[in-house]
Design a protein around this nucleic acid. Structure first.
Lengths: 195, 195, 195, 195
DNA sequence: TATGAATGAGACTTCATTCAT
DNA sequence: AATGAATGAAGTCTCATTCAT
């Protein structure tokens, strides 16, 4: 094996360690020296692996995005009913809430770093969103994209709310509501279709 | 006699103009010089009205928070049915989407400026959230807090999603879904209570 | 009386009040706003009476210098023997030590504000020093300039030492030493001259 | 491997070079840019070695203080009689008058940088003064502290006088006076003790 | 005459980045 | 590959001074 493998391997290790650092202080507020210190290397070494702060941040964002869905999929058990599956997903986010909060903060930082148009046209982002959507669709066993988005929005909103307000609104409560409503809604749809 | 200026009045005017500036570049990225330029005053004048960048930012956040609900209340027509009211609220947010996106960005910036615990215990924030919740409850004519939160989360999540993905998920669609689901859910609740 | 008299009168009043302000923080550290506040006027008014900070400072220095010897002369009683007179002078400086410390600080600040050569050639300063020397000579009844300077140096040095070290070295002690030494010295001189 | 630089060594070198810079313009008037330029380094480097202007200034003051007595001791020949020793000390100060003038200016600047009480209770200062006093006592071979202070005051006062008035009062003259007076005084003391 | 809002140059300080070792 | 000293542009903030009222 050439050295390149080690280099790349090490780069990724550093990258993963960066996640907390960036999320905790924000892109603009954390300094390269702080990052280097947090990683236990010198600034020189940091720059040896990443050409610039911006680049480091984007690499982090991409890497993070890739690892996300894998993590969720791996962690989710296989529940039976729709309601159980929903509660499973919400519970998972509750369990790893700190991580998802950081994810949101990271994403907003990412957003602030570029021009509006760029964000919306950003391929990495698009792909990530699409994957996430498909993934959720499969998990829930729902096909109507509008309904999938409904669930995703509720979950994202819940995370955002709790980011600011703390534990005021419980995951379980909202999961149960969503479960019941979706079930009711889908039943009625079937009836109407049958008509 | 000094120059006749209503200090406090002028301070608020400057404050309101700051909103876009902060929201567009983010707290840490925009410089006081840029803000001053954007306001059409010198840095000296800026510091005459606000003792520091941080203070300016927090004053902005408070002022903004106060004006928000007023604006929504004023703009909202008086719809009849629950579904109409929901669609009204969503449509309003769609119409002023740019503003609400900035609001979210501002809020996240606000969040990054302080220690975690502080945010959650922050009185201004608590009050703002509470008001917003009560206000939404009244608008919708719903009393169950869990349901109110359900709606709020969906709306916030939708805004967040659209911030990153653009127009992929329409306001109207989600509003209609929420309307139908809530209606179905409430009907069923009545039946069960009746039992 | 024309208004000019009032103007000048007021100017001097302000000037005298400035002494403590300058002495306490130092020329460069105190701001015009602080001075204005300390005087109980606006910055505008301050600039109405003094064209610049530098000018204000120099006017202060000159005014102060003029009032000094008058104050000392007025305050000194008429002692008989040389030793008594010396102790009187030292005691007077001890009593008004705070004032003389400020005087020194002011003088050093004055010194730092200009080029070396200027200070030494400065007429105001020369005159002040000369007056002070003659004045002291008369007070002590000593004619040999070298001896007068001896006393002046001792006193200035004592003030400077106490500025930094506090009450470590007492005025009375040094005054007595000087008194005895001068007396002894003058007696011996007489004897030698008689020879 | 990093650049091989003895951090502490270099820090002290920079420190010593700062002395003239501070003394010539005064603490408040000289800028960090000017200091950096005077040292031949960038402002960044300056801040790499000293966390702030204030800290740089205090470090300078301490370092200077430490080196002073060493310099005097080293420079002083071994004179025999008291009068010779006094003249030696005065001559040394005359030879390095420019340096001692700067020392005084630096000390006064130091004084202006802090609260009054702090200065008098400052440990560094106390120690410096005490050392200086003991050192002078040994040089002169005088034990009575009052007499040592007498000499120190005279010398300090002479330096201060010459700072403002230039060469008006010669070192040699005052040294001779002090020599004679002390000798006379000590002789008389012996006689009185004998009685 | 008196006020204090307004100005903008310039102060101290930080920080992404480079580079000699 | 790794280090951390060095850089200097740029950030926040201050302050002597001006000027409309």
């Amino acid at each position: 094996m050439p050295k390149i493998v080690d280099h790349d391997q090490y780069r990724k290790e550093l990258l993963m360690k960066c996640f907390d650092l960036f999320a905790e202080k924000g892109y603009a507020s954390i300094t390269m020296r702080e990052i280097a210190k947090g990683l236990g290397v010198s600034t020189g070494t940091l720059y040896h692996y990443f050409p610039s702060k911006k680049d480091l941040f984007w690499q982090l964002f991409e890497e993070q995005t890739q690892q996300d869905n894998q993590a969720i999929a791996a962690a989710l058990g296989n529940a039976e009913t729709l309601e159980e599956r929903i509660e499973g997903i919400f519970a998972f986010h509750g369990k790893h809430e700190d991580y998802f909060h950081k994810q949101i903060l990271l994403a907003v930082d990412f957003y602030q770093q570029q021009e509006r148009e760029e964000v919306i046209n950003n391929e990495t982002l698009k792909q990530m969103c699409e994957e996430s959507r498909q993934f959720t669709a499969e998990l829930l066993g729902i096909k109507d994209p509008a309904l999938v988005n409904f669930g995703i929005c509720l979950l994202m909103g819940l995370l955002l709310l709790r980011l600011f307000e703390g534990e005021v609104v419980p995951f379980e409560q909202q999961a149960q509501l969503l479960g019941k409503m979706l079930t009711l809604y889908l039943e009625q749809q079937k009836i109407q279709e049958g008509t």
